[in-house]
């Protein structure tokens, strides 16, 4: 009897791992294809694409596509711009949205239910519908800088950052997470005379690692993949991010090897960021049921 149970357990384990390996392969193959293709000349890349050779470093392998990609476009400038815009937005977004979430959950004020509903309603408004009004606004906004007062935010980093710092989804994530924190902690802190700022900084935020990681990853992906907005507001090459830069590679006859090399280069920061926060991200998804 014990033998049969042990056999069943072994079989289940093998099946489970077989399925997991299959899923891993399905998810990892596009990345392997991208990396392998980035090392091959176009003709070979196209010939290999119909067979398993597409996933193997075989044939005429070199880094020439990477060299050409750097010649075709200012890749480092694009990556720097994207990382700067994304990094600043993520940090500011975590601070502001967590504060908003905190205020919605823990602070008792009139109209917070209605305001939260309004905020959540913004989730269903596609960005494309507000892009043009936003562009008109951004082109006329004032700014006080080194040169004094000026009007118009086009061709700046701030025009790519400020509109995306606060958003309904990130606030919603924090609200959901904060609701599950034990209310007694907050009550106790209030009784002890702690200010809202102290509660936010010393009690709530230290307990919010998983949701911070989740919100950071989701925001990072959204910002890093921005295309339409930066296309509209950055006419100067020096401010363009990676996704607008991708268009540099789509000439009439597309050099696919260079496209793959560029994609490999711009995927590295995303993968690194995800791997860095992976544990907390999974923990948060498991606890909140949020699917990214």
């Amino acid at each position: 009897m014990a033998m049969i149970a042990s056999d069943n357990h072994g079989l289940r384990l093998v099946t489970r791992y077989a399925v997991l390996v299959l899923i891993a392969v399905i998810f990892i193959f596009p990345l392997v294809f991208m990396l392998m293709s980035s090392l091959k000349p176009d003709q070979q890349l196209l010939q290999d694409s119909g067979s398993l050779r597409a996933f193997l470093p075989v044939g005429d392998i070199s880094l020439q596509n990477y060299t050409k990609a750097f010649e075709r476009a200012p890749v480092l400038t694009f990556v720097f711009n994207s990382l700067l815009v994304t990094g600043v937005t993520v940090v500011l977004s975590l601070v502001l949205c967590s504060m908003a979430g905190f205020a919605f959950v823990f602070v008792d004020w009139k109209g917070r239910g209605v305001l939260l509903s309004v905020l959540l309603a913004t989730l269903i408004v596609p960005f494309e519908t507000i892009a043009i009004p936003m562009l008109l606004l951004a082109s006329k906004l004032p700014w006080v800088g080194m040169e004094g007062l000026s009007y118009g935010w086009l061709n700046t980093y701030r025009v790519q950052i400020v509109p995306f710092i606060a958003d309904g989804l990130t606030v919603f994530l924090f609200v959901q997470y904060f609701k599950d924190l034990p209310g007694e902690l907050i009550e106790a802190a209030r009784v002890e005379g702690a200010s809202w700022w102290q509660i936010y900084r010393k009690i709530v935020m230290p307990l919010s690692g998983p949701i911070l990681a989740t919100a950071a990853i989701l925001k990072f992906l959204t910002m890093y993949n921005q295309y339409l907005w930066p296309l509209m507001v950055t006419q100067e090459e020096g401010y363009r991010p990676v996704m607008v830069g991708l268009q540099y590679f789509f000439q009439l006859n597309v050099a696919w090897g260079e496209v793959m090399a560029y994609l490999s280069l711009i995927t590295v920061p995303v993968l690194a960021f995800y791997l860095y926060l992976q544990k907390a991200f999974i923990a948060s998804i498991a606890s909140t049921g949020v699917k990214g």
Partner: peptide, 21 residues
């Protein structure tokens, strides 16, 4: 000169026209 990738050029011009730029 400011150069734009061809695939994004028309959209950029239209955005520039809207923004008076």
């Amino acid at each position: 000169l400011q150069s734009f990738p061809q695939a994004a050029y028309n959209d950029s011009v239209q955005a520039g026209a809207l923004a008076g730029n």
